[in-house]
Amino acid sequence: MRTTEPVEPEPTEPEPTGSEPVEALADDAPPAAGPVANLAACLVTAGVGGAGAVAAVGLGLGTPAQPGAGLWPLAVSVAVVVLSLTQAVVGRRGGDGEKFSRYSWLSLAGLATLLGLVALLPVIGFEIPALLLSLVWMKFLGGESWRSAVLYSVLVVGALYAVFVGALGTNVPHLF
């Protein structure tokens, strides 16, 4: 019964209503990530577990009657390592996840703008970085026209200001 082909999501509902969009999605399903990705992911999680285990031993293990700070993290870390190695074997033929595509750069760009927002937030408040982020996402990542990108960005930042600063009086860093 095992198969190396990507698994098609089953139609979820026995009744006909509402299941079409899922099938539509399934038709476009990207190629599965494959065995290398599985191995890489397992090595990363195993590495996290290994690092955790080493650090946990350094914290001191104590005894069952007086458990030390490291005992529980050690147990959990070992579990992470064992499970990761199991998965490396079980999933060696790949099958889940999906490959990176050239559109993955868009996600990376989005992430970069978010980090920019975090860096600027404490320095100049949220308004200007939020406006820029919104413009970039709408125009460049989303393919809106300049007109609607500018219009909606200004509206969005204005609304956020009204809610978080005006109505709720939170302490979000704001310039105005």
Partner: peptide, 20 residues
């Protein structure tokens, strides 16, 4: 106020209640 980034060079603002 000098802002970072190439998108805006310098902005002159009447600060009226910011908390930064």
């Amino acid at each position: 106020l000098l802002g970072a980034g190439a998108a805006f060079a310098a902005l002159t603002l009447a600060a009226c209640g910011g908390n930064v």
